[in-house]
Structures are given as structure tokens and as C-alpha cells.
């Protein structure tokens, strides 16, 4: 295929449009955070960083972030463990009822989340559990574990299970087979699964609204303060939240990269 100058110009335009489409909303939130109006409105005349000063000084800012962080952390750990086990059962072994298991597993993903949230709240009430950040973890897991399971399962396509038998034949015990063969094959899936779990939990609104009770995670706070009682504090907290999650994801990636380097150097 030959590419004329027009094609590449069109291509560049296309990319700019897409990036613009993706980033304009984010930029506008950043702009809104630097206003001092009581309404979210453009263009605004006075520019200030007061909102950030307030946000950083406020106890609420840290509280909502730490609630979101702890929920996301537990969701990541539990979803990765359950998702890995699920993927092994889902894709690696053939057993009676596997087809049913596969269908049941993906079902929660297709439930509208507000409906799922409401249903979970009702069941919590039924068993007499008071909603809190802990019950929100459970609610997130119901929706996120199936997704993580699917993400990890993908690694099993093109995986030759005879590798495990070969390892065993060459003297590896059960645990060594898992450590030396199964986990290395799954590792990229586990990493993407963890990333998905974190981001889906960190930004989840519809499940948290119903199930987090008096503990307010970041998205719930943003939503309620946008609806009532808006101030530039809202977009500034949103910006801080975005930065924190980006930092967390980035540092996780760096840690993993460093770990891989160290392992690669040790033969």
C-alpha cells in the first residue's frame, strides 16, 4: 500500500481529533478547578488555585481518597486471587458443568450496575449487614471478579497444558509446576487484571452509591457535590484523584518492571 502526503495528513488530523475528543473534558475540569464561581461555567474570568489549597487542607479530601484507596486495594487483591483461580477452572480444566459455570460467571457483567447495586443493598439488609466501605468491597467484587477472570483466561488460549506435564516429568513437584510454568504464563494477564480491577473500583459510582453507607468514596462524593453544593473544590478534588490514581498505576508498573529486570539478571 502506498501512502500519499494527503493520507498521512488525514491520519494526523484523525489522531488529533481523537485525542482532542478524549482530553477536552479533562482539560475543562482542570480549567473549572481554577475558577472561583459557584457554578460550573465557561469562560470564567478569575483564575485562582484557592480551590486546590482548600482541597489539600480539607480533611474530607483525604478521607474520601483513603476510602477509595482501601476499597480498591482490597478489590485488587481479592479479584486477582479469585480471578486467577476462576480462570484456571474456567479455561484450563475440562469438567462437568464447566459450560454452566462459564455462563453464570459472566452474567453479573451484563447486569445494569445500578440494578446490581440496589439488589446488593437489599440483600445486605436482608442478612442484617450495615453498609460500609467493607460491603462496598464485596459489591465491587461481584462485578469486577468476572471481568478479571475473563482477562486472565485469555492467557490460556494458545497455552499448551502439556507444558505442565513436561515440568512434572522433569522433576517439578506440584508447587514448582505452578511457580515455574502456570504463573509465568498467566503473569501478563494477572497484571492487566489487577490494573482493570483497580481502575474499575477506583472510579465506580453506581455500586458504591448503594453499598458504601456512611463511608463516602471519591466518585460518590464528586457526584453528590456536583448535584448539590457545587464549588471549584469539586473539580479540584477530581483532578487530585486522577493524579493519585495515575501515580498509583504508574508506580505499580515501575515496581513490576524493576522486579522483572532483577529476575532477568538472575539466571
Amino acid at each position: 500500500m502506498t501512502r500519499g502526503p494527503h493520507t498521512s495528513a488525514l491520519q494526523a488530523l484523525w489522531i488529533v481529533l481523537i485525542l482532542g475528543f478524549l482530553y477536552i473534558p479533562i482539560v475543562s475540569v482542570v480549567l473549572a478547578s481554577m475558577a472561583n464561581t459557584r457554578y460550573m461555567r465557561f469562560p470564567h474570568k478569575v483564575w485562582s488555585l484557592d480551590a486546590y489549597r482548600d482541597a489539600i487542607a480539607s480533611f474530607t479530601t483525604w478521607q474520601i481518597h483513603s476510602i477509595s484507596f482501601w476499597i480498591a486495594l482490597f478489590v485488587v487483591i481479592l479479584a486477582v486471587v479469585l480471578g486467577t483461580l476462576g480462570a484456571v477452572a474456567f479455561a484450563r480444566y475440562d469438567w462437568r458443568g464447566r459450560g454452566v459455570f462459564q455462563r453464570l460467571l459472566v452474567l453479573p457483567i451484563f447486569f445494569p450496575q445500578p440494578v446490581l447495586g440496589l439488589a446488593l443493598l437489599l440483600s445486605l439488609n436482608a442478612v442484617g449487614l450495615a453498609p460500609s466501605w467493607k460491603t462496598a468491597i464485596f459489591a465491587h467484587l461481584v462485578w469486577i471478579v468476572p471481568i478479571v477472570t475473563l482477562v486472565i483466561s485469555i492467557r490460556f488460549f494458545g497455552y499448551d497444558p502439556a507444558q505442565e506435564e513436561a515440568a512434572r516429568d522433569l522433576g517439578a513437584n506440584r508447587w514448582q509446576v505452578i511457580r515455574e510454568v502456570t504463573l509465568p504464563a498467566l503473569w501478563p494477564g494477572i497484571f492487566s487484571g489487577a490494573l482493570f480491577a483497580f481502575l474499575l473500583s477506583w472510579s465506580n459510582l453506581p455500586l458504591s452509591i448503594y453499598t458504601s453507607g456512611p463511608d463516602t468514596p471519591l466518585p460518590v462524593w464528586l457526584f453528590s457535590r456536583t448535584a448539590t453544593n457545587y464549588s471549584p473544590l469539586v473539580p479540584s478534588v477530581a483532578v487530585i484523584g486522577t493524579l493519585i490514581s495515575a501515580l498509583l498505576v504508574l508506580s505499580l508498573a515501575l515496581i513490576l518492571l524493576a522486579a522483572k529486570r532483577v529476575r532477568a539478571r538472575r539466571p
Binding site: A162, A166, R168, D169, L170, G171, A172, E180, V181, A185
Partner: peptide
């Protein structure tokens, strides 16, 4: 007695090489 306790080795139909490893690491596995 399980496979890992027998003084035997098998070359598989699919070969079952460890895909994410080098030739050296494959050979050194046992």
C-alpha cells in the same frame, strides 16, 4: 509413583517446550 519421582523423561508430541523461556532455561529445567 508420580512422574517427577521416576528416572524417566518424555519427549511430547507437541514437544511442550516452555514458551516463555530461552533454549538454555528449557534444557536446564530438570
Amino acid at each position: 509413583s508420580p512422574a517427577n519421582k521416576r528416572p524417566t523423561a518424555m519427549v511430547f508430541q507437541s514437544l511442550a517446550l516452555f514458551d516463555h523461556r530461552t533454549v538454555g532455561q528449557n534444557i536446564e529445567f530438570a
